[in-house]
Amino acid sequence: MTAPVKALMDQLARLGRSGVGVLEHLGRAHLLLLSILGGLGDLVRRPRLLLIQLFSVGVLSALIVAVSGTFVGMVLGLQGYYILSQFGAEQTLGVMVAASLVRELGPVVAALLFAGRAGSALTAEIGLMKATEQLSGLEMMAVDPIKRILTPRFAAGIISMPLLAAMFSALGVMGGYFVGVGLLGVDDGAFWSQMQAKIDTYDDVLNGVIKSLVFGLVCTWIALFQGYDADPTSVGVSRATTRTVVHSSLAVLGLDFILTALMFGE
């Protein structure tokens, strides 16, 4: 073989290898998901494990979600007012704020915050448990670490996510109300009545909840997989934590586009 041909073949081989690597990775992630789901039956009999995780995954993420939601709502109120008032439509500010929050910003931003706050913590925790042989230790005690450690965290992530997104949206509406009605003088009654008239329980609220359930599943799955699959060293855990945040954020934004197209497209 001549040198250029050989170089080309090497490139192709490398491409193939990384392709196989990605598929292997995905395969392992799906197998882990199956085992995690297999532990759900057991979890019903141990609600305490779930409660503990609901606290550390959900409740501890609530503050950052609440504060961010309020600010995002206030900004929406401000920006919405400037644009809508150009058309004399500032009475519909409530609709604009609520629709943006419930349909998009609530689920998406809450999921991004969740990935940064809870997802990274989950990955680091599981990765360190692996590095310090706690997971192996459980296995040797004849306890399945996936059922006992991963499944409760997974369930807690999925349950927390819609609640966090709802909190984000609710506080966002309050923020928008404060700016629009309180500071900029939009009519109080119009703000609420327009919102009530135009926001649909199914089209807007339910679709938002579905989105956040999907995001909760994906973010928690990525976080748990990265921790469980991490190299059991300090570098390995630190890389896995970074990957959790990057992969979750990309997955949330990409999925949001797909879900929006499916839900709101004709």
Partner: peptide, 30 residues
Amino acid sequence: RIKMGMLFQTGALLTDISVFDNVAYPLREH
């Protein structure tokens, strides 16, 4: 494995529960 005990190099205790709960863990499980 219930019949095999293993002592890991680092101990491998669960760090989020107390000494008592660690020792009680296998008893409560099995």
